[in-house]
Design a protein around this nucleic acid. Sequence first.
DNA 1: CGCCTTTGACCCGCGC
DNA 2: GCGCGGGTCAAAGGCG
Length: 324
Amino acid sequence: MSNETKDLNNYLYTSSYDDYNIDSQSIMNLLYVSGPSTCNANMISPQIVSDLHSSIQGAYGVGFELSPSSTEFFNSSIDQENDFYSAYNYNISHKSHEVVAGGGAIVESETKVSASPSSSEADHHHAEDSCKSLMKREADDDGGKDDQCSQKVVKTKKKEEKKQREPRVSFMTKTDVDHLEDGYRWRKYGQKAVKNSPYPRSYYRCTTQKCNVKKRVERSYQDPTVVITTYESQHNHPIPTSRRTAMFSGPAACSYNSSSLSPVSDFIINTPRTFSRDDLFCAPYASMNVNANYQQQQSQEFHHESDYELLNEMFPSVFFKHEP
DNA sequence: CGCCTTTGACCCGCGC
DNA sequence: GCGCGGGTCAAAGGCG
């Protein structure tokens, strides 16, 4: 990690959204989970965030390319009704090619995560879109009685679908760059002025065919240096190699470790073998709470001695302390 | 020429 | 019913 990278003071907030709208104010109120860490915000933290989210969702991956910024890592979920934020702890252990991010709230609150590893999110989206186009078609078709009837059905269906909104993950990054490069290809399909904000919100869609991932980018009106990025749905394809840095040459998919799901949720993030040093540095360092079995596992689970040495070098000793 | 952004119009849900 | 705000569409234009 370069000094230039460290010098830039970037922040990253993350949250899991059940709510449909971003509430910038709410996001700003996110609990501080981690100690300040200097790492590559635009690069790795969103990756970790995304991976975390994907663990919750079942599969969700976003890789971020390098940009000169550093991050304080925030990670939380949002209670939909009360803007209540609870925090994850980011435990890490190393299982072969996996990083396990285990639950354990730092704050005195239960981690509220709607862990819905739905494999049909894309289908939901498809359904929503097709429903929408259907309605549009019906509207265009100068509807008769049948149309009125079907419209009712469609509306009912749509209401039901609305309850099953695409889960979203959003995070805030302190950066000058509006559109953070994340390795995927996006096409901007809209821009809207945001109420009470001088900064517009941009809407992007993944350009890959049959991929329904969308993302919204807006700058916080409270802190113009903060960019709020919200991802919706999940990629059903790997990151385009042409746009992907060597660092993220592996698959972005994550698996959901249901067997280890605790009340505060455990996650498995599959990481490519090329998982960078900064990657490892950023996430666990953000909130240091160690899996109690970590040290017992580490000697067996690190396939390469250098891995452990590397981590030892990167993480403060406190990170590896035993918990009672 | 393909891909992308821009931007005004449009649709829809929601609150009053 | 109306107005507002969020989200999307699609034509037009820019760029490499």
